[in-house]
């Protein structure tokens, strides 16, 4: 049997990729990774397509036994990843041998870590995606991982070319005080001036205990509605910030309902949605207004960053030497394999 065996599942470990698109009209939520940036970086480091499915690990990590040699990379929240009891670096391709355990320790920063597996997981996509909709148990793996689960590898590798080049400086994952950029709309006209000023106030909002893949309920100054109540239900985009009559905002995320009937003051911009996904109960979010042009420019910058990283790693060359021994010239290339 290829793949890994789950000894301890962790608080909530699930299979996630970019998500399931094209079915929201029927009420099917896209699901997908809460921090797509970190999942994409992990995939690039192990030579996968950026949106390949990996594991999303939440707050406490799983303990897994590998049944096959495989290369992995771990990114996102620092939950002290280890290989057979020895700490392993994050943002770095790691060779795991058959029989070894990957497990985690104390959480240091962030909320969600991502594990990418070279060649991907051996899971047949359901409605074009391998993501699990954890809240209502839909997906090719229809639950967050449980003790005893086994998941296969599609094309495992004991090692990859240029292992030494498959590493970047660990990215900073902020989970105490986070600036989140927001585009106003679609129903910002249903709020008072004071409500909008409160929303963008300097103290920001505390993430409440009610925060999960569906959404984050926030606590702070009231986002005052002109008229309390609901609107005629309409569509909900990822990162929508809805305000129920309690006037305390809720950010809707990967497992959001596709439609809803509360007024939405604004929407977190795409490049900042991963930052919300790394917030934990007690984190402070401060909102800043940006324009659509800026939001879309930042998203283009993010795409360019990931493409550059991908080509840098793909094109990394072995170290080459010209060696002269007894009048003969030799060309030697050395590359680290593990």
């Amino acid at each position: 049997m290829d793949g890994f065996f789950v000894n301890i599942p962790g608080a909530q470990t699930s299979v996630q990729d970019e998500g399931r698109f094209g079915y929201q009209w029927s009420g099917m939520c896209p699901s997908g990774a809460m921090d797509m940036h970190s999942l994409r970086v992990a995939n690039i480091l192990v030579g996968n397509k950026m949106n390949e499915a990996g594991l999303e690990v939440t707050l406490t990590g799983p303990d897994m036994t590998f049944m096959t040699d495989e290369v992995i990379a771990i990114t996102g929240a620092d939950i002290s990843p280890m290989l057979d009891g020895t700490p392993i670096p994050m943002y770095c391709a790691i060779s795991v041998k058959k029989g070894q355990h990957v497990h985690f320790g104390a959480r240091k920063t962030g909320c969600r870590a991502y594990i990418a597996f070279a060649g991907g997981l051996d899971i047949e996509p359901m409605y074009d995606s391998r993501s699990t909709w954890v809240r209502i148990n839909i997906g090719p793996i229809d639950h967050a991982l449980r003790k005893g689960d086994m998941i296969g590898f599609r094309a495992p590798s004991a090692s990859l070319p240029q292992m030494a080049a498959r590493s970047i400086a660990p990215e900073t994952i902020e989970s105490k005080d986070i600036e989140i950029r927001v585009l106003l709309g679609p129903q910002d006209d249903l709020f008072t001036e004071e409500g909008i000023a409160n929303f963008f106030g300097k103290d920001g909002y505390k993430v409440s205990n009610l925060c999960n893949r569906q959404g984050y309920r926030l606590e702070g100054p009231n986002v005052e509605l002109i008229k309390k109540g609901s609107i005629v239900s309409d569509g909900i985009a990822k990162g929508a910030i809805q305000v129920p009559p309690s006037e305390q905002p809720i950010i809707l995320l990967s497992e959001r309902q596709s439609t809803g009937g509360y007024a939405k003051i604004g929407n977190v911009i795409s490049v900042d949605i991963p930052k919300v996904g790394q917030a934990i109960a007690g984190s402070r979010l401060r909102f800043k207004k940006v324009s659509i042009e800026e939001a879309q420019r930042l998203l283009a910058d993010e795409a360019a960053y990931l493409e550059n990283l991908e080509s840098r790693i793909k094109e990394a060359k072995p170290t080459e030497y010209r060696v002269k021994i007894n009048q003969s010239v030799y060309h030697i290339a050395i590359q680290e394999m593990a």
């Binding site: 585009l183 106003l184 709309g185 679609p186 129903q187 005629v232 309409d234 569509g235 985009a237 990822k238 990162g239 929508a240 939405k264 604004g266 929407n267 977190v268 911009i269 795409s270 659509i292 939001a295 879309q296 998203l299």
Partner: peptide
């Protein structure tokens, strides 16, 4: 209506 940087809503009225 602008619904973030990756979605818009075309709204035909206020009532259902």
């Amino acid at each position: 209506l602008c619904c973030g940087d990756s979605a818009i809503a075309v709204q035909f009225g206020e009532t259902a």
